[in-house]
């Protein structure tokens, strides 16, 4: 195997880890308030918001990818916005991949955290309130620690799902080395070019990685026993 090909593979691995890390952190910041709201609200919009969050679970990635390409493109609303802000266009850039990934991995982070918040119930928060904890304080010192298993599952699933995503990245990435050429695209390229040996070591690595992630999830997560 040539060293140039090797270094292209390593660059793809590094880029993928970078993307998944950034996306997971952003998802925790964005997903937590959404999960909290969904868990506590009695609003009539709860169903609609929950459905939008869950959309990426049912839509084929190429469909999401195509619409993201249209929305982020020069004629789409997001494209118009980023252009007028002087940020340029998002397709074919790393930030573009991050935004797309945040959208399609959202349910994988929101749903476990939401379930964990719902499992806490009213009681611990009422107790905290009677002890004069502000809602903000109660959230951080009661809800978050109790929902820790949900955060753990959400982070692991969000990270793993971002690593494994292919269809959307393919649609809006443009296969640019060090910017948008992630491992899944690199594997696809190797297979298409009939470079099966290289495809094997990357794909094998991905299988091992996914297994390790799920093993960690099922071994260390005590919440699995509680949630129905």
């Amino acid at each position: 195997m040539e060293s140039a090909a090797y270094s292209a593979d390593l660059a793809a691995v590094w880029l993928t880890l970078k993307l998944a890390t950034v996306v997971t952190l952003l998802l925790l910041v964005i997903g937590t308030p959404i999960a909290w709201w969904l868990a506590r609200t009695r609003s009539i919009f709860k169903g609609a918001v929950g459905a939008v969050v869950a959309l990426p679970l049912v839509l084929p990635p190429t469909v999401i990818g195509f619409y993201l390409l249209v929305v982020m493109g020069p004629h789409g609303p997001l494209g118009q916005l980023t252009k007028s802000l002087g940020l340029g266009l998002l397709p074919f850039t790393f930030p573009g991949l991050v935004i797309a990934s945040v959208f399609y991995s959202l349910p994988f982070v929101v749903q476990p955290i939401q379930n964990a918040f719902e499992a806490i119930g009213e009681r611990p928060l009422e107790v905290a309130a009677t002890l004069r904890a502000s809602p903000w304080d109660a959230f951080w010192s009661v809800a978050v620690p109790l929902a820790k298993p949900g955060f753990l599952s959400g982070s692991i699933l969000g990270f793993a799902h971002t690593v494994g995503e292919f269809g959307i990245v393919l649609m809006i990435g443009g296969n640019i080395p060090d910017k948008t050429r992630v491992v899944s695209v690199q594997i696809y390229d190797h297979v298409e070019a009939l470079e099966y040996a290289q495809a094997h070591w990357l794909a094998g690595g991905m299988v091992l990685f996914s297994f390790a992630v799920l093993l960690a999830l099922y071994t260390f997560n005590p919440a699995r026993r509680k949630t129905p």
Partner: peptide, 9 residues
């Protein structure tokens, strides 16, 4: 073709 027809490229 999609890249070009959407104007993204």
């Amino acid at each position: 073709h999609q890249f070009v027809s959407t104007g993204a490229a």
